[in-house]
């Protein structure tokens, strides 16, 4: 009996070792491919940055009302482009590494699934990043404009805009990742529809008297001659 157990353990250990031995070239291939792409990405990003610096790209961009500089104020345009180049190569390195890993193991399941899903993940990550940047930019714009227009609810307005964009971004990301299916679309539709409906009710019913009184007051008010400002800023 012990002999059979021992034999069985030996054979499973052998299979495990065999499996590990077949995986090792794949792992090695993954590491080599990844490091190779990392190196190329790093070199290319340096090259791109050098070329853009030689072309005075940042100065050219900063001469006009550069949208790129406004959206990413801390990074110079050339730095931003060189980083994009670098990260593209990192992602390509991972994809190629996974492929070479599976070429080494003669199985195609994982890479097939990953390769099929990677574009979605990349797209979702870009959407998430863009949504966050957009939410921050737009909410700050609304806040500053609102304060400069003396709106006491500027902060509330800015937060509302920020969350609207973030929720919209979240729904788009989930949809892009094919997670949640119809629930996301349905939930988002109900949420947005509900907000619009609630606002319509609030304005239409809740403020009916207020609006009519305001209109009557406006119609009855004599035309005012604007008073000249006493303080001149310009």
């Amino acid at each position: 009996m012990w002999e059979q157990v021992e034999q069985s353990l030996h054979s499973s250990m052998g299979r495990v070792m065999n499996r590990m031995a077949t995986l090792l070239p794949g792992v090695l291939a993954f590491i080599v491919a990844f490091l190779f792409f990392l190196l190329i990405g790093w070199l290319l990003s340096l090259l791109v940055r050098w070329i853009l610096t030689a072309l005075r790209f940042d100065e050219r961009m900063s001469r006009g009302a550069s949208a790129m500089a406004e959206w990413s104020p801390r990074a110079t345009p050339s730095l931003l482009i060189s980083r994009i180049v670098f990260w593209c190569f990192v992602i390509a390195g991972v994809v190629v590494g996974v492929s070479s890993f599976e070429a080494g193991t003669s199985e195609n399941l994982v890479s097939g699934w990953i390769l099929g899903y990677v574009p979605r993940v990349v797209g979702a990550a870009i959407l998430l990043l863009a949504g966050n940047v957009l939410a921050r930019f737009v909410s700050r714009s609304v806040l500053i404009t609102g304060v400069n227009l003396n709106l006491s609810y500027a902060r509330l307005l800015s937060m509302g805009v920020r969350w609207m964009i973030l929720v919209l971004t979240g729904a788009m990301v989930l949809d892009h990742l094919a997670l949640g299916g119809a629930i996301v679309e349905l939930g988002f539709g109900i949420l947005f529809g509900g907000i619009v409906f609630a606002l319509s009710l609030a304005v239409g019913l809740g403020s009916r008297d207020l609006v009519s009184r305001s209109l009557e007051r406006e119609a009855a008010r004599p035309v005012e001659i604007p008073q000249p400002e006493k303080v001149h800023h310009f």
């Binding site: 700050r140 404009t145 304060v147 400069n148």
Partner: peptide, 22 residues
């Protein structure tokens, strides 16, 4: 100079402070 935030936002955020000085 440092582009800490968008320059449009930065200049917009100066107005209430300027009005405080005024």
């Amino acid at each position: 100079r440092l582009r800490t935030i968008s320059r449009v936002h930065l200049l917009g955020a100066l107005t209430p402070l300027y009005l405080g000085w005024v």
